[in-house]
Design a protein around this nucleic acid. Structure first.
Lengths: 248, 248
DNA sequence: ATGTAGCGTTGACACAGATCAAACGCCTTT
DNA sequence: AAAGGCGTTTGATCTGTGTCAACGCTACAT
């Protein structure tokens, strides 16, 4: 078995991710009730699945430590990474609708999640309006995030997509107290490509291009951003018609 | 003002879309309570907005009659259609997370929606667990739908995208009691293209190709599907490597 | 230390779809 | 009925990204 179930109390009340995965402004009594909701944790080793497509849906998972990807596999073998999730983010909401999961969730490094049994979450949120409202916001945020991925896949060129990707990670690391300018990507070029709707070679070339242009320093999976404004301006300016695009 | 507000009772209890937008198996008393929740309707003329990006979020909207698109506009002018919605579907869930809308919703034909004030929906769903659970499923379904759009935009070729698009509409019309094989598209080639991440010319060519191959008959916006299995098989088979792809 | 397998980079070339352009058909307006 | 405008179709050409291939680097295992 790849998965380890702990009977440890998850103890939201003492978790340093509170601001990210919990509603703000709860009373002490309310946080105590959350503690009882989120009663178990689960460790997932790198490369192992938290859940698989088709598995019965029973719980949501709050990532305590580590890093995940979700992906969808088509019958013909093509697959698409639909997201990368880090500490403080919620996994599993895809499963609510059909009561079984519609994607795979795979740990990209040794990780630990808090298990939130869904029936109990619904029970508690019907009693705690703050929690209910917060949960609705979390689901809505997922819908908004998906919209921006559609935008990315539907209208952006390769380098814009990668710039958007880097800026998104920079921003999410910042929100967790890490450096906005320097971080370690856990996924391969192929996984980045799958997420961005590009081939791994194209991702690699775009990285090289950004480095040549002095926007970033790339050393394998380690990224250092030198000129964040340059990356931003790649996004806000529409792609110029042919003759003005070339930089070589 | 493009919008007309009716003080008509919306009367879920007498609506023929119950199976689509309401939880199943409600008691009569429960349906009565819903009637009081959804108290107003709003008419939206073709081309007019139901809501715009940035507008304060106050309510969800259940489409009673008509047809909508949602789209997102980037600063540089590029835009992306993120969805097409028809009777029985819910609009506005994007707004919950930030309390303001993140996309535009535009009527593609004269339409009418039921207004569901969100605060009241949360109030009522904390009292009616069936309703709460149903609402969670509706939001999750939106997340799952977005996943399949990502798959479409990330991994499919032009003709596959259009086949997926047609099959999706066929299936949704069927669910509403209309013909699975013959329907009228309300949007332009450009809007289809924006949704599918293609240019309008590519959409037009793919339609022509399907017609040459005898899969469909196209007359402007009117579509008749002759060979639905052929469309399905375009999706389930991976694209062949070059020499076997050509059909001309 | 040394071998090895997987990941990443780079180059050459091919192709699907974008772009540019022109003509056509449909629907609305006068 | 004529005119105009918009949406659509179709053709010719261009280009960004995919594909195929070779090589290099890194990290891990022995």
């Amino acid at each position: 078995m790849p998965l380890t179930v702990h009977s440890l109390k998850a103890a939201c009340s003492q978790c340093n991710l509170q601001e990210l995965c919990l509603p703000l402004g709860l009373s002490e009594a309310e946080i105590k009730r959350l503690d009882s909701l989120v009663s178990t944790r689960r460790k997932v080793k790198r490369g192992h699945h938290l859940y698989r497509t088709g598995a019965a849906f029973e719980a949501l998972y709050a990532i305590k430590t580590g890093f995940f990807k979700t992906d969808v596999l088509m019958e013909d073998g093509r697959d698409q990474v639909t997201g990368f999730q880090m500490a403080g983010e919620i996994l599993g909401m895809d499963g609510i609708s059909l009561e079984s999961h519609t994607c795979n969730a795979v740990a990209l490094e040794d990780s630990e999640v808090c298990v939130i049994p869904f029936a109990q979450l619904e029970q508690l949120s019907s009693e705690m309006r703050t929690l209910q409202h917060h949960f609705h916001k979390v689901m809505s945020r997922e819908i908004v995030r998906d919209q921006s991925v559609m935008m990315l896949l539907g209208t952006m060129r390769a380098e814009e997509r990668l710039a958007a990707f880097l800026l998104n990670f920079s921003q999410r690391f910042t929100a967790r107290g890490y450096s906005a300018a320097e971080f370690h990507l856990r996924m391969t070029r192929e996984e980045i490509g799958s997420y961005l709707g590009l081939k791994l070679e194209t991702v690699s070339r775009a990285f090289s291009r950004f480095q040549e242009d002095g926007f970033i320093v790339v050393q394998q999976k380690h990224i250092r951003i030198l000129d964040i404004d340059a990356l931003k301006s790649l996004l806000t300016h529409a792609p110029m018609p042919a003759p003005f695009t070339s930089r070589g």
